[in-house]
Amino acid sequence: MSELRYEAPKTLAEAVALLSGAKGRARVLAGGTDLLIQMRTGRIQPELLVDIKAVPELGEIVAGNGGYRIGAAVTGMQLIEHADFAKRWPGVVDGVRLIGSLQVKGRATVGGNLCNASPAADSVPALIAAGAVARIVGPHGAREAAVETVVVGPGKTSLAVGEIVTSLLLPPRPLRSGDAYLRFTPRSEMDIAVVGAGVNLTLDAQGICTQARVALGAVASRALLVPAAAAALIGTKVDAAALARLAAAARDACSPIDDKRGSREFRLRTAGVMVCRAAGIALERARRNDG
């Protein structure tokens, strides 16, 4: 029986050194809400757990340059309870709110929700729509990557051995902009997204959409940024015709599977519905966010 080791480094450099030294048999332990289940079911059998919660900077929520830096080990509940962040990025908070129960969100981290690389992770489409960037540190230094490039497939990320996501950077929130995330699940809570849709849009003074980002979850092997769906909104008042084009573009971007949580057909149909409803909420928020 191989011994499972546990380390709780106090600095990022130590954490990176531990991860790099373990030849891929190490796992980052943040909230642990996915990791512990995967260990329990035997899906993964790591030799080393690197608990990153003792690294101070990974637990911070910092406002700066009009935007936000969220440490990768910030828990869902910490983010939900951060009043100013929730005011600026209500759609991201929508997504975080849907990560499991209150109990799970008391542990689960935003960084973990991303790096677990589930196509159905609730915060990820919201972060992609928000234009969030992941800051990554590894044995060869630091880099930044758009959130939509971090996950490459179910359970797979673009992180190299020894690299960890240290924080997520949210850009400044423009005036007259708003975001929203909605998902569809059979139960009202405690469920996994069958379809998730994040929309972030900005209006001009006349109510015309000038910028938009649309992201979808659970309809492909990873969360998708869908530029064609955003294009359906830009230049419109987000009226019925625009929403119809949005729904069509969203459905076109999907490549869902049939599985225990929903059929391909159902996911395609529901993706269009969810993205329109999310756009409606984002629109309302944008209108209210007039300075």
């Binding site: 059979p186 139960r187 009202s188 809570e189 405690m190 469920d191 599985d259 225990k260 949580r261």
Partner: peptide, 16 residues
């Protein structure tokens, strides 16, 4: 069996 757990075997929760 694909759903041997309370996540995907969906018994009603309080908010349902």
């Amino acid at each position: 069996l694909q759903n041997p757990g309370f996540l995907d075997y969906r018994i009603p929760v309080a908010s349902d």
